[in-house]
Design a protein around this nucleic acid. Structure first.
Length: 355
DNA sequence: AAATGAGCCAACCGCGCACAG
DNA sequence: GCTGTGCGCGGTTGGCTCATT
């Protein structure tokens, strides 16, 4: 009652996001924190529906998102968790803090489902493939193989240290790509002034690809000046500065108290080990969780999904469990995580080598 | 070089739940 | 208690890229 409709569907822009839109959104969230998505399009002037803004933020722009190849550990976890939880991508994503549910879902649908199927076909001839237990067994076996192959490859790949692909980098890459590929700055209506840059490109693949291969110093100066967003007034001089500047944009220190509290709520809710008790306003906290806590949550999730009724009460039980310091008994998944992925939690949070 | 198909992924759609009024 | 809205989630799709013919 009294609330305006979510989006009027009139004049709502669809399709890929442009770097301008990304920057507007990021700068807005930097100022106000995520959440209250309803007001985001209005306050930013973005011709996007609130849902689209939220999705863009959670799936692409929010800090802590790792993009690119999935590590064998991640694969193994996804396979296990999928077998355990089913297509509960959000739940699965909660164990892979740097991955979004959308990413995991896509990866499952495009890679793992096929791999698993193939593996199952190889493994079983007569067994009933529809059996859930068999599926679990196959998944376990399959991820075992992945894990062991990772053990081999991890040493091999250990030198290939993957950088922490935060959204900061995503955006700076975006901008960089934009600068390099775009023909001209857009019209004066654009809140940005781009020197030596080009037009917007929404092709993130291309940008990422380009920038991954691009170590040349970009001498061009990107002056991003926000008209509607006074907080965003950046002068990006070159590659490295992009990162620094965006780090600064996105840094939690830059969030005011209100923002930080919003962040805590919204980000922590959407963040993996989302645990209000553990959530801190520091980014490091978002990417650090204790083994104990991790185990706790896994156990908890298992319980939740074994008992269908628990779903509705999962939130309250989560809170309850989070306050409970008793160690739960090791579950199947938990054991796997402990036994086969020693330091798994840390590894997830750290920068896993891309295989 | 052009055509075609497959793979991939960002984004959209629709549903359900929680909550405010 | 009812209704409408915000938000989160899972399924699906549009469109781009790349490989193959």
């Amino acid at each position: 009652m009294g609330r305006p409709p979510c989006c009027d569907k009139v004049g709502i822009k669809k399709g890929p996001w442009t770097p301008e839109e990304d920057i507007i959104l990021v700068s807005y969230i930097q100022e106000h924190g995520p959440g209250n998505w309803r007001s985001v399009p209005t306050n930013t002037g973005l011709s996007r529906c609130s849902k689209s803004c939220r999705l863009r933020w959670t799936n692409y722009l929010r800090p802590g998102i790792k993009r690119g190849n999935f590590t064998p550990h991640e694969e193994g976890m996804i396979i296990h968790l999928q077998a355990l939880l089913g297509n509960k991508w959000a739940a699965i994503a909660s164990y892979l803090p740097q991955r979004t549910d959308n990413d995991i879902k896509n990866y499952w649908n495009t890679h793992l489902k096929k791999k698993l199927k193939k593996f199952q076909q190889q493994q079983t001839g007569s067994m009933d493939s529809s059996s859930h237990q068999h599926l679990q067994a196959s998944s376990k076996s399959f991820s075992d193989r992945i894990s062991s192959s990772d053990n081999k490859s991890s040493t091999q790949c250990s030198s290939i240290t993957t950088s922490y692909a935060s959204s900061t980098e995503n955006i700076s890459r975006l901008l960089e790509g934009w600068m390099r590929t775009s023909p001209k700055p857009s019209s004066s209506s654009s809140p940005f002034i781009i020197k030596g840059g080009g037009g917007p490109s929404s092709n993130h693949h291309e940008i990422d690809e380009e920038n991954n291969n691009n170590n040349n110093d970009n001498k061009e100066v990107l002056l991003v000046k926000s008209v509607s967003m006074p907080a965003l007034n950046l002068e990006l001089h070159h590659h490295q500065n992009h990162h620094q500047d965006f780090e600064s944009i996105l840094s939690f220190e830059n969030l005011n108290t209100t923002t930080a509290s919003c962040w805590d709520k919204s980000t922590c809710d959407s963040m993996p080990n989302n645990n209000n008790h553990k959530c801190s306003s520091e980014p490091a906290a978002a990417t650090t969780f204790s083994h104990h806590h991790h185990h706790h949550e896994i156990e908890e999730e298992e319980e939740d999904y074994e008992d269908q009724e628990e779903r509705k009460n999962s939130k309250s039980s989560r809170d309850k469990n989070n306050n409970d310091n008793n160690n739960p008994p090791l579950s199947f998944l938990e054991k796997w995580l402990l036994d086969e992925n020693v330091g798994h939690g840390e590894e997830i949070m750290e920068l896993s080598p891309i295989f």
